[in-house]
């Protein structure tokens, strides 16, 4: 059993060691690669001088602000479309016309309208988060056990009451799955915007390290960004297990 737990770690460990050895033996001098020991030294230094913590704060702020706005819009629209079939059908063409626009294509529009900084990044992240939330919420609401809706009708609940007391609680586990996926997308989009153009946060940090030809620092940022993405994912999966138990995982991997 203990072997099963170590198996997944063997490959990364072996790769890291081989790379370190190879870099040492060949006296690696490169603008794009650095031995793992140098990467971790650079990571420790950047963590200590607060450049990475500050960049992380900026990126996460934009990520969560965009996620909050985008998923709130997506949730509201998703519930409305899920509850009312006619509304869904009427809006179909409009939604299908806007949804395929890649979020990053909005970058130049946001840039001229809002300038550099948090605001444009938040807008783009929010746009990207609306769609997974909308679509998964809509299908979650639609797949609610019909008898629950019959009960709510029999109890003569008003529409707002019905949504607050029946629809949202029943659809919540799947809505949370949508939220988790949106959070991953939000982080990806935030970092992408920073790398492409916005001079704040982790994405700008990694670009700056590349332009300064600091391969060790650049790869340290890469490792850190990966760790942030992984931690966010783990955290949300743990929250999902905690809040909804195994019921939520059934809606996963559709």
């Amino acid at each position: 059993m203990s072997l099963d737990r170590t198996k997944p770690l063997l490959l990364p460990l072996a790769l890291t060691l081989t790379f370190e050895l190879w870099a040492r033996l060949t006296q690696l001098q490169s603008d794009s690669l650095a031995p793992p020991s140098a990467i971790f030294a650079a990571l420790a230094a950047a963590l200590a001088d607060l450049s990475i913590p500050i960049a992380t704060r900026d990126t996460l702020f934009a990520t969560f602000a965009g996620l909050a706005i985008g998923s709130a819009i997506g949730l509201a629209l998703g519930i409305a479309f899920g509850v009312s079939r006619p509304l869904d059908r009427l809006m179909e063409v409009t939604i299908e016309a806007i949804r395929p626009i890649p979020s990053i294509a909005l970058l130049p529009i946001a840039l001229i309208a809002l300038g550099f900084g948090y605001r444009m990044e938040i807008v783009i992240v929010a746009f990207a988060c609306v769609w997974p939330m909308l679509i998964m919420t809509r299908s979650a609401v639609r797949s609610i056990e019909p008898r629950l809706m019959e009960v709510s009708r029999a109890l003569r609940l008003s529409a707002p009451q019905r949504i607050a007391k029946v629809v949202i609680p029943a659809a919540l586990p799947r809505i949370f799955v949508a939220f988790r996926l949106s959070a991953g997308i939000a982080l990806i989009v935030a970092v992408t915007v920073e790398i492409a153009i916005n001079p704040i946060g982790l994405g700008a940090g990694i670009m700056l390290a590349q332009q300064a030809l600091r391969a060790d620092l650049m790869l340290a940022y890469l490792v850190w960004i990966g760790a942030i993405g992984y931690a966010l994912n783990i955290l949300l999966i743990a929250a999902q297990r905690r809040l909804f138990g195994r019921a939520a995982l059934a809606g996963d991997n559709p």
């Binding site: 490959l11 794009s32 970092v191 992408t192 790398i195 590349q210 650049m218 890469l222 960004i225 992984y230």
Partner: peptide, 20 residues
């Protein structure tokens, strides 16, 4: 498992490395 670990990595972070 290593691949699953890499999955949440924002892919665009590889761009600076590719440019270098």
């Amino acid at each position: 498992p290593s691949l699953e670990f890499l999955r949440p990595l924002p892919v665009s972070a590889i761009i600076p490395v590719a440019i270098a």
